[in-house]
Each structure stands twice: as C-alpha cells, then as structure tokens.
Amino acid sequence: MDKNQIKELIAKRVAKELHDGDVVNLGIGLPTLVANFIPDEIDVTFQSENGFVGLGPSPKEGEEDKDVSNAGGQYVTIKKGGATFDSGVSFGIIRGGHVDATVLGALQVDGEGNLANWMIPGKMVPGMGGAMDLVVGAKKVIVAMTHTAKGSPKILKECSLPLTAAGQVNLIITEMGVIEVTDKGLVLKELGPEVTVEDVKAATEAELIISDDLKTMEV
C-alpha cells in the first residue's frame, strides 16, 4: 500500500465506527478523509470547532464564502439544516458531552490511553487549539494514524511527549489493526490486511493483548 492507500484504509475503517445520528468532530489531516466514506443511509452531523454543525463538501473554485471555513481555515460549505454559533457554544457542545465521537491524529498513544499530539518540545510548538477540549469532552475518542513514524512505534508503553489528555483514548485505528484501550490494557481486535499478529507486535512498543475473537479488518 502507498501512503494514500494507507490513509484511505484507515479513514474507511474509522467511518464504520460512526452511527446514524452521531455528532462527530474530525481533526485536521487524515481524520478529515473520514467524511468521504460515510454510507448514504447513515446521517452523521459533523461539528467544526470554529463554530458550526453540518459540515458540507468543499465549495467549487470561485464559490467560496469568506465567512465559512473549517477549523483548519479552509473554505467549506454548510449543509442544509446546519447551524453556526460562537466559540462558547462550540466548546459547550464539545465539553458538555454532546459530541459522540472525535477522530484525531497522534504523535504518540500509550497503553493507558494517554494521547500526545500537540507539541514536540524545542521543535514544534503549534499549540493545542481545541484538541485538549475535544479529547476530554467527546464520548468516544478515536485515534486515526499510521502505525509507525518512519519505522518507529507510536503506540508506546508510556508517552514521552507532553500529553494532550490523560487516559481519554478509546480506540486506535491504524493500517495494521484496530486496538481498543481497556482497563486491562491495549487489546488488538482486528488485524490489518496482509499483516500478522507478530508484525503488529513488532511495530508496537506497548504490550498488546490479542483478542480471543481476533478478526480481519474489513472496510
């Protein structure tokens, strides 16, 4: 698989986690792709933390509205039935438990469900934006990312980078598998295409519990 196929596979698998009626916030980058793979019969409302629900497709060139952007600053559209609001309401929705799922990328995740995705001290300090609120407030936190970074594991025994939130991650979806964060630790529930349990273990620093009901990832 090339990079784009990997991203598409992950996004497709994440899409299967979303249910009819869900309110969902997608992070910037790979998570944004998830919106492309929601089946027509499922109605998911996308929330954008800069202040609206009902994220629609990208506008045609020349048809952008300068007052309609997503949380990454790109021009987007608002679907019929969408609604706009200020940052107070937006984060009330987020912290108040009105978001069913948030999908974010990660620099590191660990066996305790800790997430680090907002800074690398001395190198990259963009700020947390809305990520800390989203991870604490959303009912379900799904990390969608490539399994390793330049061959190094990102799923660690313990995050070494500054945390975005402690113990909030519920599910990790990568091209190598689907991993659930449980009280007992990380449980490998699904295997990615063309990989073995040994491959996943080798690419993961954290201990993995292999589910008795291990399945192949279907997208």
Binding site: F52, D67, V68, S69, T84, F85, D86, S87
Partner: peptide, 12 residues
C-alpha cells in the same frame, strides 16, 4: 449581527 463562522470569539 455576525455572519456564519465569522462569529467565533467575537461575541464573547
């Protein structure tokens, strides 16, 4: 009156 997503932090 504010317009669409140009509200953000303004009203607060």
């Amino acid at each position: 009156r504010y317009n669409k997503t140009a509200k953000n932090f303004n009203p607060i």
